[in-house]
Amino acid sequence: MANPSYVTLGQRILAGLDKALTTVMASPPYRWSQGILRRAGVTGRTLVIAVPWVWLLIFFLIPFIIVFKISFAETRWLGSPPYAPIWEWVEGHALHVKITFANYLFLLSDSLYVQAFLSSLKVASVSTILCLLLGYPMAYGIARADPSWRNTLLLLVILPFWTSFLLRVYAWMGLLNNHGVINQFLMWTGIIDEPIVMLQTDFAMYIGIVYSYLPFMILPLYSNLEKHDPTLLEAAVDLGCRPFRAFLSITLPLSKPGIIAGSMLVFIPAVGEFVIPRLLGGTDSLMIGRVLWDEYFLNRNWPVASAVAIALLLLLVIPIVIFQRYQLQEASGEQQR
């Protein structure tokens, strides 16, 4: 705006938008409705909060309450919807309330579900650690790279994230196949005589999860590591500290918020992952996301599927709260700057 020759297309669009809105705001219908709203005590500020608030209330909070409710309902195999109503107004009697804990007891009694929960936790934890082991050096490398390279390297981390997740998982099916590139290469070099079975094993599943979630680990780590003051490390080295020791006692503790954020961003969605175990994991791989999917799509058992969802949510409450606290700190920390 300092120089009129720099009027960009974007600024022209904004100016047009402003003009149109000013015309609308000067028109009588707008003024009437504004007067009514103001008399009702509704200000622009309230409206800005209210729109997203109401949206999230209807499409985020209330759905959970419904899932919670249905998880206590009885399954009705031939009905539509396939569950019995929790409360019914019975003629001549009164309000009839039917709540059953059978769905939760079923989850506990069938060892399949308990095992699925345990193995999901294990798979997600191992994948998180693998992501951290691979992502930390990468994030650190990018943060320490020449500034002219940094944006390009960062773009290279983000780029796969913009391409279809489903197709990237599919790409590994081509690589890990019995006749896939990796097996062909190993057989060509003579290291192996027969193809190694890699597809539909836990190994393939771990590769898929680490591969898909690696950018989520690198980005928060990078944004933390990039802010570090390099003079701290220099001072430590000048005072005779070994570089590795300096890393352990300065860089690592300072990057704790980044580690926590990245780990939560990997761990929480990985616990409920469905696509990767289904496409890369074995047919016997027990992941809770897959169990929920089958319970809904194959068994049509909505109450049990809801109970699985509630149990999964309870399992993830603590990690989600940790993640949210980090988000809050990050937001307020940036405001202080």
Binding site: L265, V271, G289
Partner: peptide
């Protein structure tokens, strides 16, 4: 919360809604 919520939960809850 929707940033980290497993998709199967979001999907099921919206369907039931």
């Amino acid at each position: 919360a929707p940033l980290v919520m497993p998709e199967v939960i979001t999907g099921l809850s919206l369907l039931l809604l």
